[in-house]
Write a protein that binds this DNA or RNA. Structure first.
Lengths: 120, 120
DNA sequence: TACAAGTATAGACTATACTCTAATGTTGTA
DNA sequence: TACAACATTAGAGTATAGTCTATACTTGTA
């Protein structure tokens, strides 16, 4: 598929998709048999990748972290050990974030309690 | 205390503290009895606020969200209902983030399992 | 008193992650 | 065939959150 279809399927603008391509997160292929243009063609794996990018971004991963994560999953040039190491690192950072969020939740709940008790 | 002491206590640079002041997150007081300078003076509440800013930032809150949160806690110009509304909103967004993080954790765990099973 | 250290303000610079514009060329349909 | 819609690249612009520099004045200590 071409960029516009990819954009429609994922809900990510063509501009942003090109930005991700330049950032090395996804890679379109050019059809060598067609000489009249140099349009990029994308496959279903790219759709998957863009969905992963969106999910990972929503939990606070940066572009470069997402790059590492996708390399660990899609790139066959790195070893199993290296892949597992990257994935473990991400799992640890997620656990830390969950822990911090729970602390923040506790703090805000206490704020709320204090606000209600002091003023009613 | 002056900005340098505040910086030492909190571990936040004077530059960043001034940035937070310009952003409206904290507010120093000027000593009207001193005419020779216009140094800002900070109290313990500012130390508390800077610690809250650091914690809230670490879980992904933006400066403006932190501003709302601190208004709900420190500002007596808004009603109890408004404060509770802001705090509830933050609690909901934290729960959403935790939910998303748990999903991401599940996905990465599955990646890891697949990587190990397919390659060993 | 000299001078190092501290303070304030304005504004320039950086990094991340887009977002948009301009210029130019290609494709598909009335 | 005209022309709207789509594609590419380069590069400019935006927002967020700092980070740093320059300039100028003040304070504390040898």
């Amino acid at each position: 598929m071409l960029i516009n279809e990819l954009s429609k399927i994922t809900g990510i603008t063509a501009h942003t998709i090109r930005f991700y391509e330049k950032s090395g997160l996804i890679k379109g292929k050019r059809d060598e048999t067609v000489k009249s243009n140099n349009y990029f063609h994308y496959d279903d794996e790219t759709v998957e990748k863009l969905e992963l990018i969106r999910d990972a971004k929503s939990v606070g991963f940066t572009i470069s972290e997402i790059g590492e994560l996708m390399d660990a999953w899609y790139n066959n040039k790195i070893t199993v050990e290296e892949k597992v190491a990257v994935l473990d690192e991400k799992l640890i950072s997620i656990d830390e974030r969950i822990k911090q969020l729970k602390q923040m939740k506790k703090m805000i709940s206490q704020f709320k309690k204090d606000v209600i008790e002091d003023n009613c």
